[in-house]
Nucleic acid binder design. Structure first.
Lengths: 248, 248
DNA sequence: CCAAAAGTGTTAGGCCTACACCCATGT
DNA sequence: ACATGGGTGTAGGCCTAACACTTTTGG
């Protein structure tokens, strides 16, 4: 099947099963090698990248739709997902679909609901679907050109992530189950965009009583191996209720 | 026209000019006599109250739709308005419309975008439209029964308002142009839900340098009349950029 | 004089920052 | 020895909460 036929097939299916004019876009954050990543798709026939997204089935909650879309793209369920903003300008979605016939589903005006997700980089396998050429992690500092208003959506998500850092389970969802203190600190430094004082950081984290200590890491490097920690999820979530109050 | 005919007329017009499945609901806050108020409508033929809301025209930005809906209900433009959450559960909107024929616009499944507005109570004239019996301010502490999930929407808006108090132009938009220091303090106390220390409050507000002092109020009471203030809008907005940092 | 409003001083505590110094561990 | 990691002590600065005291004004 060529690209147009793929879109046509998608168009037919969507008309049958989805609500028109409403779409969902997901900004999926991951953390790897000391930098923040976002999951992006490259569509066939378009020379730009886009956020994973989709439509809402007629008998499906909006949140469920976001979960379904994410699961299709990552294979993972139990993902942290939160709606953060709606994008509803006239003409925001049609521009990059102008090559398709007017009758196609994709040519509609869409009001898109933006979700941001926090996932464990290592546990995810980016899945390419039929209408996308590739599905990859991209570094937040070197993004390719994005279609439609996806750049704006992404930046809004990042802004929300920063603002919510004391209320979102950032550490729990972006790090592997077992992690080291330097990793955790780097994560916070990257999200906040500034260096943090090591000693004070450790003190603060420990003061929350949300960490379980594990055996040291059997490292291969010429130094002391870092201690492995995991989160005490119960106490972590309790602490988030009041916000991890502090200014960093 | 009876109630059903009114809905029928509205249904026809909406099918012609609006996007299906998408709606807007507005939580309009006002401040009067030391308490926080919300603008509510009582629909004809339904025994519950509802938030002012409406649909999005085919060639209209989502934000524009919210402004238009609010202007119709309040007569005012230049209203502070911000989207805060989307409500998209299956069945959230249909329940209270079950008395209408299935073909009616109102029986659709709607994904509703919630906006909250801050308005100057004195400058607003609540407007009743053809399908509502009345449009009134209701005290936040004694709300009537609300239709659909409007209670949930309202509580979400209130929560957002509290969280954003240091980033929203709360004082500027909820108070009359000239106001007194005790008024301002009461506003903050009500939004935050706790009493504030008078002396410290004044000191803080003054430290921001966002107030213009006016002549004293020609009061009729047996006391010293309070000083009238207005906001220096330029400096107020500058200060909001960084958030009115403090914990209250 | 009284009651409401306005303004200022002061103290104690809490938290954050920054710097410093300690120890542990694997090569 | 050295580089990395883990942990603690402490002083200064800033903000806040709480209390107190003073002054102004209209009736």
């Amino acid at each position: 099947m060529n690209v147009k036929e793929l879109f046509e097939k998608g168009s037919e299916l969507a008309y049958q099963s989805c609500i028109p004019h409403v779409s969902v876009d997901c900004v999926v954050f991951g953390f790897h090698e000391s930098s923040l990543k976002v999951l992006l798709l490259k569509m066939k026939g378009v020379d730009k990248w886009g956020l994973p997204g989709g439509y809402v089935k007629k008998q499906e909650d909006l949140d469920q739709a976001a979960y379904r879309i994410l699961k299709a793209r990552t294979g993972a369920s139990n993902i942290f997902l939160e709606e953060f903003k709606v994008f509803g300008k006239v003409g925001r979605s049609e521009a990059d679909m102008a090559h398709l016939p007017e009758s196609f589903w994709q040519r509609q005006r869409f009001v898109s609901v933006g979700y941001y997700a926090l996932v464990n980089y290592a546990e995810i396998t980016p899945v390419t679907d039929r209408i996308s050429e590739s599905c990859e992690w991209k570094d937040i500092d070197s993004l390719p050109e994005l279609m439609m208003d996806h750049r704006e959506i992404l930046e809004n998500a990042l802004h929300t992530l920063r603002r919510n850092i004391n209320y979102s389970p950032v550490g729990l969802n972006l790090l592997p189950r077992e992690f080291t203190m330097p990793q955790l600190q780097r994560l916070y430094e990257i999200i906040l965009g500034k260096p943090l004082h090591r000693g004070n950081f450790q003190r603060k984290i420990h003061s929350f009583n949300i960490l379980n200590k594990h055996d040291a890491n059997p490292s291969k490097k010429a130094h002391r191996p870092p201690i492995l920690y995991s989160f005490d999820t119960v106490r972590y979530n309790e602490a988030l209720q009041n916000g991890l109050k502090q200014e960093w």
